[in-house]
Design a protein around this nucleic acid. Structure first.
Lengths: 106, 106
DNA sequence: CCTTCATATCGAAACATGTCAATATGAAAT
DNA sequence: ATTTCATATTGACATGTTTCGATATGAAGG
């Protein structure tokens, strides 16, 4: 279940449309917080809070340069999240079937 | 931004480790609610609530058969969620660069 | 019909989240 | 040194989520 905690933390972060949108913005390259802020109708403190959540779950990296903070994607974390979906969609032909799970047989 | 609402709804659903685990259980095939319930330390009403969230976001289909309810994955919804990650990770070489986003040039 | 069983819904309590204004921090410029 | 600017943190409030026990629904079996 611990695997699922890490995955769930990433999905929880993306569970807010604004954060999902920010992730997409960052797919075009590193961005300064002030630029991201311009695209939204939200306070500076709220954006800072959202960026912290994206960083804490590992999806986004931050880097300070003078007064500015730059954010970028962490491709490895994104690959891990995709791995969850791959595991879910991959064929399970070699695995134990669901017959053991059938409630009419218990 | 509407795209992100749909995506965010799916991610929000997976933002709970129990629901992420249930999705993985379903990757092995269709399951009866009563069987899922056995794997968790939660009340029946709580499981019903979680299954509703997984169904409402489209990730899971449900089917009634007599007294039982069977749940299964909706592969299309899963593909769409993967599409979000693909969009984020794919090369953006042909797109507008981030130069227009640079806070030092405004 | 009445009971039993599986699931859904309701109502309430505890907890988490999103948001803002105010304030703190820390770097750059004057 | 002082001010200014970008960002982070704090505290407070409204809203949403998770959870349970209790109750409702609806199918199957006596």
């Amino acid at each position: 279940m611990e695997d699922y905690l890490a995955h769930a933390k990433v999905f929880k972060a993306l569970g807010d449309p604004k954060r999902a949108f920010i992730l997409n913005m960052l797919s075009y390259g590193e961005l300064c917080a002030c630029v991201i802020l311009e695209k939204f109708d939200m306070s500076q403190s709220t954006l800072s809070h959202h960026m912290k959540i994206l960083c804490d779950c590992g999806l986004v990296n931050s880097r300070s340069e003078g007064k500015w903070t730059y954010y970028s994607l962490n491709q490895e974390a994104i690959s891990k999240a995709m791995g969850f979906f791959n595991a879910v969609t991959s064929s399970k032909d070699n695995c134990i079937s669901n017959e053991g799970f059938d409630c009419r047989k218990g």
